[in-house]
């Protein structure tokens, strides 16, 4: 009985968590593209104006970023100015929650058919590498290891801490700017 009453609250909490994580990740993608040369190198191969979307099917939370040139991303929030070039779609919010709460690695979620790729797969692979790089920076190593296929050996603590601080500062600033606007 109690479980039945709590269930809607749990679903609501899960939905809010996924929405919040998309907002953080979208802003963090923009931030990491401003501070990390490796991410910039990866992103430079994407066409200028390239729109990347992560979303929960059928009409759930969305994360949309645009490559604005020189390896830099711009976070568009949850609405795109035009149809996305590549969309990674979680089949259900429960699957998005598994990945965004680091219970399932992104690569495992792909392997488990938790999500679909719509668009050029090579760009989706590139964006996944960028997401992995971002997660390796912003998450504590013990959690990052649960999120990415392999934690990068060459990412040492000083570099990680400095980059993570820069990214979190930019994310926080962006949140404040959005709230003011």
């Amino acid at each position: 009985m109690l479980a039945k009453r709590i269930q809607p609250l749990a679903f609501q909490a899960r939905r809010l968590y996924v929405e919040l994580m998309f907002q953080v990740m979208g802003r963090a993608l923009q931030a990491v593209s401003e501070v990390d040369s490796e991410v910039q190198g990866e992103a430079q191969a994407l066409p200028k104006g390239f729109l990347f979307e992560m979303m929960v099917m059928p009409e759930g939370a969305k994360l949309i970023v645009e490559h604005i040139g020189n390896g830099r991303f711009h976070y568009h929030g949850g609405s795109a100015p035009r149809p996305a070039d590549v969309s990674i779609k979680f089949k259900h919010i429960a699957h998005a929650f598994l990945v965004l709460s680091f219970q399932e690695k992104t690569a495992v979620a792909f392997a488990n058919d938790r999500m679909l790729v719509d668009g050029d797969v090579s760009y989706a692979v590139r964006m996944t590498r960028i997401l992995n790089r971002l997660e390796s920076f912003i998450l504590p190593k013990i959690i990052a290891k649960r999120a990415v296929k392999e934690y990068p050996e060459n990412l040492h603590l000083p570099e990680k801490l400095i980059s993570a601080a820069q990214i979190y500062l930019k994310v926080a600033t962006h949140f404040v700017q959005t709230a003011r606007a």
Partner: peptide, 13 residues
């Protein structure tokens, strides 16, 4: 090869 879709499913990064 690094941008090929099948690399996602390789067991090792």
């Amino acid at each position: 090869a690094l941008d090929d879709g099948s690399i996602m499913f390789n067991p090792k990064e």
